[in-house]
Every structure is written in structure tokens, then in C-alpha cells.
Amino acid sequence: MNNGDYLHWQTVPTRWKDNDLYGHVNNTVHYSLMDTAINEWMIKTAGFDPLRGDQIALCVESHCVYKAEVAFPDTIELGLRVGKLGRSSVRWEAGLYRGSDAALIAEGYFVHVFVGRGDRRPAEIVDPVRAELQKLVIA
């Protein structure tokens, strides 16, 4: 993967509290940043309403491979793309790059399954969410 493969970018500052006793951003922060970037994109860009909509998106699988360290006060350039778009699911792929030198620090993915709010059964992804997701699908 190279950073040209991602179709949506977000700059994320690290925070003092993100550093752990080893002097770098703790691994749990990487997952939190990916989850936050994905949900922010769905809400702001695709009009997804996680609080009142008929559907919610559940994370059923996630993974992260750590490549390099990052520490406060550096920033993280987080790239998103859709690796696979199914009927009721989406595989988000993320690349996290150190802002100071563009080094790849982590690559990860989240799989969301869209389900009905009440019955928690898989449901076809509705427009405009699907239309916006399609814009992030890589060839």
C-alpha cells in the first residue's frame, strides 16, 4: 500500500495522554483513530445517523499492523478507502502516516455490517450511504 491509494484524508493531532510508558503512542490509540475517522466520515459525508437512523453499523472484525512509532506532539495523516463493498457490509482500510516525515506507522481495517436498529439483522446499505461509500472503493 502506498499513501496514494487512499481516497479520503484526515489530519489527526496526537495528544499528550496518547503516549504510554514506552514513550510512544499506545496501540489502542490507532484503533480509536481509525474508528473515529470512519464514523466521522459516515456522519458528515454520507449522512449516516447512528443515533436516530433505521440502521446502525456494527464492527464485526478489525485488524492493525504496526510499522513504526509515533509520539506526541507529532500529527498523524490518516487515509481511508473502501476495500470491499457488499450488500450489507463494508471493509474499511486505513493507513496511518507520521506527519513529520510521512512514514507509514500502521495499516488496518474495520469490517462494518449494517443492521436494523431494532432487530440487529443484516440490512442492505441504504442510499446515500452506499453512493458515498462507492466513491471510496479502490479498483
Rank of each mutant, 00 (worst) to 15 (best):
G23F: 04
D127N: 13
H8A: 08
T28S: 12
G79R: 10
R98L: 10
M42P: 05
V60L: 08
Y31A: 07
E124C: 00
D35V: 02
Q55K: 01
A94E: 04
D49E: 08
L104G: 13
A102M: 15
V90P: 04
G4E: 12
V113F: 08
T45L: 01
I38H: 00
E93S: 01
D127W: 02
N3V: 06
R81E: 03
P73K: 04
P128F: 02
L136M: 05
P73C: 01
L7Y: 08
T45W: 00
D127H: 07
G4L: 10
G86V: 05
M1W: 05
V60S: 05
I138T: 12
G79M: 09
A123E: 15
G108F: 02
L80V: 14
D74Y: 08
R15T: 08
P128D: 10
V111G: 11
E77K: 15
Q55C: 13
G47S: 00
N27E: 07
V25D: 01
G83A: 09
G83P: 03
D18Y: 03
Y6A: 04
E132T: 00
L21G: 15
T75E: 13
H30S: 09
A139N: 13
R15N: 05
V82K: 01
R98K: 12
R117W: 13
H63N: 14
K135F: 01
P122H: 07
G118Q: 14
L33D: 05
W16F: 12
M34E: 04
G95A: 03
D5F: 02
G118D: 15
L80T: 13
R98E: 13
L80W: 09
A131C: 04
K84E: 10
S89W: 08
G79H: 07
R15D: 05
G23Q: 07
G47F: 01
H30M: 08
Q10R: 15
G86R: 01
E77Q: 14
G116V: 11
D49T: 02
V60M: 04
T75W: 06
V115N: 06
Q134G: 08
P128K: 05
E77Y: 09
Y22P: 11
L104A: 13
D20G: 05
L78F: 10
Y97E: 13
P73R: 07
L96F: 11
S89F: 09
I56D: 12
Y97T: 10
V90W: 01
K67A: 15
R121S: 06
D74E: 13
S62M: 12
G23H: 11
H112A: 08
L78I: 12
H112I: 07
I43E: 13
N2A: 11
S32N: 10
T28Y: 04
W16S: 06
